[in-house]
Design a protein around this nucleic acid. Sequence first.
RNA 1: GUGGCCGUAGCUCAAUGGCAGAGCACUGGAUUGUGGCUCCAGUGGUUGUGGGUUCGAGUCCCAUCGGUCACCCCA
Length: 417
Amino acid sequence: MSRSLAAPRGTRDLLPEEAPWWDRAEAVARDLAQRYAFARVEIPLFERVELFARGLGESSDAVEKEMFRVSGARGSDEERSDWALRPEPTAGIVRAFVEHGMHVRPGPLRLTTSGPMFRYDRPQAGRYRQFTQWDVEVIGDAGPAVDAELIELAQRFYREVGIGEVVTRLNSIGDEACRPAYRAALVDYFGAHQDRLTDDSRRRLDVNPLRVLDDRELDPELAAGAPRSLDHLCAACREHFDGVRAALDALGCAYQLDHRLVRGLDYYTRTSFEFFPAGREGQQDALGGGGRYDGLVELLGGRPTPGIGFGIGLDRTVAAMQAAGVTLPEAPPLVAVVGDGPAASRLVVAARLRDEGLAVRCDGSTRKLARQLESASKVGARWAVIVGDGERATVKDLASGEQRHELGFDELAAHLR
RNA sequence: GUGGCCGUAGCUCAAUGGCAGAGCACUGGAUUGUGGCUCCAGUGGUUGUGGGUUCGAGUCCCAUCGGUCACCCCA
């Protein structure tokens, strides 16, 4: 086909061969959401640019250089607003929380959603312009128990999809009480070594000095000597973080402290965490991550309400499942209805078998019987039901070749189990 | 946004600057109701696109688009 009609850059088609892995990952997510008492919500795929700019922070990469803008329609001013495809779900969920007055609901509110996110990046392995996240959020619980509960949930998810144990990195980046002093300490420290910073980092030093820490080109020696947020936590943040760690220990959840884990989105406070496949902890291999955002609800116009959540990248989860050699549960056995009589007879038999709950592939074609059987074998059917002119049919086991002839339509199902 | 590598059939790949091919897959036949194996045949291409060099370009040059990997950063 013409290249100009090919799928947009950074997007992928989900083809039948890969769909079962997605089904599995999504089934585990749905099951866990239910077992952990999260209610499903859906929010728009696009929102005002302003929502993301305010929520995620002007200096976040997601806003600064990865915003996937949607050109507005002609017409009213409202339609001409600046829209962007959502780069992550939290801002939209918190917007919905505020917009619908959900603070009056019995809290803490536990919400989950799943779907495509968009970031306008150059694609590469594991990174797409459209990717899918499973997301959970708890709004109205100041923790720290819930912080540990979410980390335990994510770890359980990776275990249940078959990836096994992941590496959990953990940090606390303080709150409005202690972060200003920590920021100042970073500005002092890195300001004195500006000549050893990248251009990006020098710029960030003014806007968001924490993000200098996740500059990968940061001089290791400089990084090692940098002020650590854990050393600058106020008493309340310290107590919170100790509580998270104690709860994780009680749950038996392993984690590693990572002083340079500051997360790319500005709304995070206190607890931050990311998950990596064991042995592949490179920066671009993150399977998921999240953290606490105690100031976000207020920032978006609600009354002060704490929140915490995580997003798990399903594209990378599926890739990790395949890399780990996960075997999927077998699909239910398939019955192929074939025959060279009237196609309507085949349809009638197929409908009867479907009434019995069987998975049936009906071949209504005029191909000769040999071709129909060949086709049935190739698609992996367990049995063929050969229908002729009359009211009787043959059941053939396609693995053994065994056949039972002259069966009435009503007794077929009994031979297909 | 920057850089490396790569663009030939649905897939994997051939073709010294000289007739665009093979295997797999798909469709049909060998086989007048019975598959997997085998054999035969067929469908399938503006060689990503546009320029240039040349008697002649899949091949050389330029541009462009795309893919891929890496950087940046995130899922």
